[in-house]
Design a protein around this nucleic acid. Sequence first.
RNA 1: GCGGCUGUAGCUCAGCUGGAUAGAGCUGGGGCUUCCUAAGCCCUGAGUCGGGGGUUCGAGUCCUCCCAGCCGCACCA
Length: 642
Amino acid sequence: MLSAYKQELASLLSRRIREVYDLEHEPAIEVPPRRELGDLAFPAPLHLAREVKKNPRAIAEELAGGLETPPWVSEIRVEGAGYLNIFLDRSAVAGRLLGEPPSPPAERRATKVIIEHTNINPNKAAHIGHLRNATLGDVLVRVNRALGFTVEVQNYIDDTGVQLADVVVGFLDLRGMGLEEVAELPEPFDYICWDLYSEVGQWYEEDASRQDLRRQTLHAMERSEGLRAEMGRLVSRRVVARHLATMARIDVDYDLLTHEGAILALDFFAEAFEQLKDSGAVRLEAEGKNAGCWVMPLAGSEEFAGLEDPDKVIVRSDGTVTYVGKDIAYQLWKFGLLEKDFEYRFWETEDLWETTIDGVEEHPLFGHGQRAINVIDARQSYLQKIVRAGLEALGYIAEAAESIHFAYEMVSLSPATAQQLGYLDETADGETRSLEMSGRKGIGVKADDLIDQLEAKSRDEISSRNRDLDETELDTLAHQIAVAALRFFMVKATTTRVIAFDLDEALNFEGDSGPYLQYSMVRARNIQRKLEGAGLETEVSPDEAAALPAEVWADDLWDLNLSVAQIPERVEVAGKSLELSLLARHALDLAQKFHAIYHRHPILQETDDAVPVSPPPRSSCVGWIAWQRSWVCHYQRGCSRG
RNA sequence: GCGGCUGUAGCUCAGCUGGAUAGAGCUGGGGCUUCCUAAGCCCUGAGUCGGGGGUUCGAGUCCUCCCAGCCGCACCA
């Protein structure tokens, strides 16, 4: 791949620098902003200027002078302030690139990466904030698979938490409904819960004593006893089924659903607690405000410097375990550091498992990962740090280092959208503040509603330009476009930025959008189809490409080639840095370049006789298109549905 | 108070370890359809890169102080 060429050049330059200046320098390598400046660039002379005490351009000249160059380099030039720019022999490189399909290192297969994402409380419908989580999680899964890792996808279901308890109280106490009645409620069940959940919040406020019902329910669910626990199970399972259906609509799926109830029932924490006590990671507090609690001291760590309270309660004075405690146990299990294990059974179909306390004999090996990536919003950074500190305190240094919190920011509603949906008072002047979503208050855009709108929009767009599709084709297309629009929208934003969700923006299929990417692929496919129809070649062999005269590579065409060749390293960087928007940007860049070339070079019109001419002859374009398509197809699943 | 994130064109945002004229998309204006071509392409519209100071040959990028906004810092999850 391109990175191999870069490395080769970098080591040659590094050797040259040692010869001339007797310095150890690892040269950075860039791609110049414009193709006429070169294909690759070394800013090394600029970096060396201070140490060598010479003008960068002079250094560049000196280095370029005796630099040994591989046969696939056609020219070295000094440019700008002192860049050493490399011009590649385009045909030679194209030939080699065509002959090397992308392949990640095979040894990575032995590394198992556990990715936990989605994790929606099973008490209400999913909203667009959850879509950000699921989309990022799913793209991360695809990236890791493309990089060659073995990946296990877990979706954690908090089926014993307060949020679920509130909806149980809603059905039992507020509505006075029984199990059968709730079981028979029509779909969409998660929408019913959405409304009920915010109702219960108000109902508590009317009479504070009703909070007892919540506590009662919570305890029943934790012990898995009685009607309240039964109702919890029913509601949770019905809602989870809806969440899975929603996520399936946008091509997100899982390997394992881990239920908090199973963690409690199997008492994972007991074993983790023994480890924590044995290693001295927790201590029983005799006095002070945490008297009677088992706490984990954090004061020693720099990471937690300046905390008001340097201790984190792991076991409450009433003997119950906090969320962090349970999470530490779960995290230990992920790395195979607990002797206990879940039992497993199928959720509904044979491609998805769930944890349970009495499962089937034969099941895959879950857990036992070498790396655990938790896709959880940035508000939980502090808690995720504590979980990591817990592993460290237990002496699991390597596992702590491989416990990765993939943090991303929230999704809020843009002022315009909030107003459109009636959450903002129109009279409340034209303020530009966005509105935070809140399940408790029932404020938000439900995921299925958004997907419905996207599908309706793309349906309109399709039928306005193509009338002879039957209903099924129309549905399929509309769905694919809607999914691409949504996934791209979620992935293109940098993770550190709050998305102010704007409905009109999300529904726009022009410019930097999923459909724009799809359209470039459609065009590439159309060209190939036409070529086939005309009985022309649709592919070019590596040898043929290598034999092409240099003149065929117009700058724009070559530029696109280089961008395609950069895909593997971009995937690599995105996977390592967890900045998946890099992929969206790169895909967008490719699509833009392709669309521009598409207009400049009417490929079907060109002949191979016309060499040399400024529009490249057909064979170079044809070869490129086939190549680009195969590569982009290989990676698109990791990026979006471009 | 402590910690994290954010402040770049009217709007939404890129800007890779400091480096080649600060870039996209949307919106506005103007063009392009004998086609592989309109979910597109081309042209046009200039921004105290929140503000001050500093380091450097060179700062949107690093350091420091300040301003504004968001989010964390529970015996809630």
